[in-house]
Design a protein around this nucleic acid. Structure first.
Lengths: 123, 123
DNA sequence: TCACTTGGTTTGCTCTAGGATACCAGGGAT
DNA sequence: ATCCCTGGTATCCTAGAGCAAACCAAGTGA
């Protein structure tokens, strides 16, 4: 495969320089939330549920910075700010899907492994 | 798609309960390093490059806990401990590949977006 | 004038992943 | 006796992600 994981070439390792910014507790959730079209700030917040405004706006800015989503302000009476996936963000979403589907199918196996491991730290 | 990202149902959200443990700075790298067969502790460390023993053994334990890899000790004169992907771990690797390939192809776009964003915080 | 909405920012805290360094145990080799 | 090899563990510390709660600004409506 030869993807990296070798030599401390952090700068040119796609995992370290790209994927590291997709991890974190919220970013994947935000990208998935935007799958079906643009959402406003409050809608994203409601979709995810338990994220604070500060953390959400931080993460949105981070995703915008990496080019995954765009931010547009429509200055109606109550200022409306909406976020949408860019083409790059949609590509990322597609690349992400196999992983998301897999985790959905295998969640049970992982939880079982977890419990099994907890019970026998013997040996 | 309907994968979660809605309602604070953390427990049954595959992203939060499964994928959150694959993130972190080292775990993907470890899984990729083990793609071509079992490796011993020192070999994993050398493959990744700049990880401390403490952090590496923590992460290996975490991946073992979730059932992605197995640990086997062969008590030769210098004790040899080797790690290998389990079938579950290999499935995870397959699900991970599209994302890894994508990040490899698009690393340039992401870096460009990053630079463009830094230069115009105007407006 | 005051309260309410949306979409934030600011301050200050906590919690945990990760980092540096040292030590340990079993068995060589010298 | 002493030092090296393996694969760790023990301690202590730092930095950054995330949290809570307050504040802010523009506009609306009563």
């Amino acid at each position: 495969m030869q993807v990296c994981a070798d030599s401390g070439d952090t700068e040119n390792c796609p995992i370290r320089s790209v994927l590291a910014n997709v991890t974190g507790k919220w970013r994947m959730l935000i990208i998935l939330a935007l799958e079906d079209g643009p959402l406003r700030f409050g809608e994203v917040k409601r979709a995810i549920g338990d994220v604070t405004q500060r953390v959400l706006s931080e993460n949105l800015r981070g995703l915008q910075r990496d080019g995954y989503l765009s931010r547009s302000v429509e200055p109606g009476p109550p200022v409306a700010v909406s976020y949408a996936l860019t083409p790059l963000g949609q590509e990322l979403l597609e690349a992400l899907k196999p992983l998301v589907f897999w985790s959905h199918r295998r969640m049970g196996s992982v939880k079982a492994a977890r419990e099994a491991f907890e019970q026998q730290p013997a040996e």
